[in-house]
Amino acid sequence: MSIKLEDIKYTYMPGTPFEKVALSDLYLEIREGEILALIGPTGSGKTTLLQHINGLLRPDSGSVFIDGEELTKKNLFKIRQKIGYVFQYPEQQLFEETVFKDIAFGLNRLKLPEDEVRARVYDAARLVGVSENLLERSVFDLSGGEKRRVAICGVLVTKPKYLMLDEPASGLDPEGKNAMLRLLKTFRDAGITVIFVSHNMNDVAETADRVVVINDGRIERQGTPREIFTEHDFLSGIGLSVPDVTDFFRLLSERTGVEIPDIITLDEGYAYLRDVYSKGGIPS
């Protein structure tokens, strides 16, 4: 079971001076159970791509398949239950009187029994780490970080199988950001496939199982973080970077002439240096 995009083409504002081919020749498969990071320079089509997966935008040509079922106008609502979409700064969409009601908003159309609604809201809150005593508060009384978590609960409440997040850590302080990255792993471990957009390569290296690089509306690379982040020249050519640690060891290797294995996370870097030191330090 997976999400498949086949030969997607999408033109933004056709027939106007702002016309722009936003996506073209786009094929992508998102497998169940992975954390997939979508990276690309600003304006490359990351958000446009996400909006095709849950039918907010319809391709000019090509098809989207969710678990083998083609996305059409008719099954839109059903498929959106399966695919949660957390927008960038999702806290800006909160509107209900209480946190509970806001989280439950996505269930209104399902006409579920009250105790089922309650159970789902509590489940979502528990998973995301929204404490129960917040549920009766006004959404406008929360702190920024709390609001974002509540907004994510409001998406999780329909029990999506896939969860897309557009820059979930943007605007958060380091503590909030790290908590958000841990949360993505929690989702994956709870059986939710996670697709997230990020500009921060350190975060991508530490969190993602697979990375897709999009540039100018096309998918240019996909692979494990290690495969992607060894392509330093390609990435910098399209205005992206590699994780700081990777960059550091590349610099070290250049200066010392020592062959250093590809290192993309802090843990790997630490293990490598500890190892080197135990064998007598860096030869220069």
């Binding site: 909006q51 959106r80 239950q81 927008f87 969409q93 908003f105 269930l107 159309r109 998406v155 329909t158």
Partner: peptide, 13 residues
């Protein structure tokens, strides 16, 4: 436009 899209994603009609 963005808010309409976001709320539709949450199941708004």
């Amino acid at each position: 436009d963005k808010i309409i899209k976001a709320q539709s994603s949450r199941g708004a009609e």
